[in-house]
């Protein structure tokens, strides 16, 4: 009786040791993976990925990387930054917890985005060891992103829900197209910040999922098997989603930096010490300011 269990345990352990030989990409599934490329009824993801990656992704990333800052440079030169009085009262808007979570996410983004771009433009950097290290940093800093994205999603979920102010904010593009200090319709977060939040959290979960899939590559997911999606098609879809979302993340990340560092003078300090200038809140988050007034907190 005892020896039976020992044999079972040995078999189970040896299957672990030889687990890799049961590859999802290259063993029996190789046939499904091959047929998935262009057979009738296939998703044709092989061709889509090849066309996108060979002709579109690189110029698009190039366009976003230099186009978005160029637009902001023009904005900065023509309209200029918003400058709010620093002499009035300060309003405490971000708790220490908010700031720590934001800082972790920020570090993750600062590591992930440039390394991702280096991989996209690997030819320019000559490939090899340097880009390989960047690829590993890209993967490892995902851990930082994972620990920050969950608390960030939960702590800001409620104020980030859409409201009627968002449409008005979009109509005037947040009041950034003129220098007048009209109150801008926005709650605690404006529509632009909300867009960034949903992209960074929901989009972030997708980025993590697709990235982890490409990192581990050879694993069995029952949901794919039951829907007869081949592993390579799943990886192709992951690569397409990861790159398309990456474009959006890059564009909004550059916007986020421009807004906090250049467009609104001193705005970055609210994420360092938690306090925003009263005038800044009054103009840029007028609905939130009214709310605070009614509560007597401002």
């Amino acid at each position: 009786m005892k020896s039976k269990y020992i044999i079972i345990a040995l078999l189970a352990l040896s299957s672990l040791a030889f687990g890799y030989s049961d590859s999802v990409v290259w063993s029996d599934n190789l046939v499904d993976n091959i047929l998935g490329y262009d057979k009738e009824g296939s998703l044709h993801l092989g061709q889509y990925f090849t066309i996108l990656q060979s002709t579109y992704f690189k110029p698009l990333f190039f366009g976003v990387l230099f186009g978005v800052p160029a637009i902001f440079l023009i904005h900065y030169l023509i309209i200029g930054p918003m400058i709010f009085s620093h002499d009035r009262k300060k309003i405490y808007v971000f708790t220490l917890f908010n700031r720590i979570v934001h800082a972790i996410a920020g570090i993750a983004f600062i590591l992930i985005i440039p390394t991702g771009l280096i991989m996209m433009f690997a030819t320019t950097f000559g490939g090899g060891e340097f880009v390989r290290i960047c690829k590993d940093i890209h993967a490892i800093s995902t851990l930082l992103f994972i620990v920050s994205i969950v608390p960030m999603f939960l702590m800001w979920l409620r104020p980030m829900l859409p409201s009627s102010d968002d449409i008005k904010w979009m109509m005037i593009l947040g009041g950034y197209l003129n220098k007048r200090k009209d109150p801008v319709p926005a709650g605690r977060f404006n529509a632009g910040q909300k867009m960034w939040f949903w992209l960074a959290t929901l989009g972030g979960f997708l980025m993590i999922g697709t990235g982890v899939a490409m990192y581990f590559q050879d694993f069995r997911l029952d949901i794919l098997v039951s829907n007869s999606i081949s592993q390579i098609d799943f990886l192709r879809a992951s690569a397409i989603i990861h790159n398309v979302l990456g474009l959006a993340v890059l564009a909004l990340f550059l916007t986020h930096i421009y807004m906090s560092v250049f467009a609104i003078k001193g705005a970055i300090h609210s994420m360092i010490n938690g306090y925003k200038e009263e005038e800044e809140v009054e103009i840029l988050h007028s609905s939130y300011y009214k709310e605070l007034k009614e509560k007597g907190e401002a």
Binding site: G46, F49, Q53, V131, K135, Q217, R236, A239
Partner: peptide, 9 residues
């Protein structure tokens, strides 16, 4: 760099 894009293509 071992990105495996060639495998997807």
């Amino acid at each position: 760099i071992g990105c495996a894009y060639c495998l997807y293509a």
